[in-house]
């Protein structure tokens, strides 16, 4: 039987704002399938975002939803989670929002290993403002503010998350639709900070400036350059040039922040 998305969508809030061909809708559907698989209680789940195209997602879904300020989603989410540890907290947003203006909040949420799931839609560009380069735009690529090619080196979001201390880090692409929900569900079930990077296509602001003639071409590139983590482990650095390593990239057990703070409460009360 087809999955019933309507049970999680707010009536009357569609159509969404995303352009035809945008991958955010694929992420939305994957997210809802993951939340369903984890049997999340709508009343006890918060979905938090910052600013940008991907950050409009919470408005469409029937949970406790918070569309915050640019880059601040992880910090708002930290407040919700610490105040109400029994709630499940998810963050959704884009690359500029998450690791440029929100970079500080992102790495510190990872460091604390606070129990939340951050779904970061990396489409290499600031889409909502019309296509300026982000810290994830590949070097040499074109954006409205890199008209002669991007001179800036690129963030590897997964490496950033792992380095900062996230205890579950995974990556997939908008092409690998059936992997999106599986990885997000794993992230939700994981106790601690989980980061799922979804490489996403922005045909309007990124694709058309960078010689992708269609959405299909953008999807094809995801399909052709993706390498599962297990396969990548057997490949040389040279062979991995230009490839996207997908799947679970890092998983470890480490004390979770709210549980650590409960110990602070116990010590303060002399327990």
């Amino acid at each position: 039987m087809a999955f019933n998305y309507e049970q999680y969508l707010r009536p009357g809030k569609l159509p969404h704002i995303w352009c035809p061909g945008c991958g955010h809708g694929i992420v939305l559907k994957g997210l809802l399938r993951a939340m369903d698989a984890c049997h999340l209680d709508k009343d006890r789940t918060a979905v938090v975002s910052g600013i940008g195209c991907a950050s409009r997602l919470p408005g469409y879904v029937d949970f406790n939803t918070l569309h915050t300020a640019h880059g601040r989603a992880a910090a708002f989410a930290t407040g919700i989670k610490l105040a109400r540890p029994e709630m499940t907290v998810l963050v959704v947003g884009g690359d500029g929002d998450g690791v440029a203006i929100g970079g500080n909040h992102f790495i510190h949420a990872c460091r604390r290993n606070i129990d939340m799931t951050y779904v970061l839609c990396n489409n290499y560009i600031y889409g909502m403002t019309g296509g300026q380069f982000s810290p994830c735009t590949p070097m040499g690529d074109k954006a409205s503010t890199t008209p002669y090619g991007n001179p800036d080196p690129t963030f590897d979001i997964a490496k950033l998350a792992i380095g900062a201390g996230a205890t579950f880090v995974a990556r997939t692409t908008a092409f690998h639709a059936t992997q999106i929900d599986k990885l997000i569900a794993e992230g939700i079930r994981h106790k601690g900070m989980s980061v799922i990077e979804v490489l996403d296509d922005c045909p309007t602001a990124f694709g058309r400036r960078n010689k992708f003639r269609s959405v299909v071409e953008m999807m094809k590139r995801f399909k052709e350059t993706a390498v599962p983590a297990a396969t990548a482990a057997k490949m040389s650095a040279e062979e991995l040039q230009g490839k996207i390593v997908t799947g679970i990239l890092h998983r470890e057990e480490r004390p979770e922040y709210c549980e650590q703070y409960q110990q602070v409460i116990d010590r303060a009360r002399g327990a």
């Binding site: 601040r72 910090a75 708002f76 407040g79 105040a83 510190h108």
Partner: peptide, 18 residues
Amino acid sequence: IQMEDEIGAMASILGASL
């Protein structure tokens, strides 16, 4: 909670207040 910066501190209290 001691946050990573002043903006984060403000964000955390608004999340908690909600």
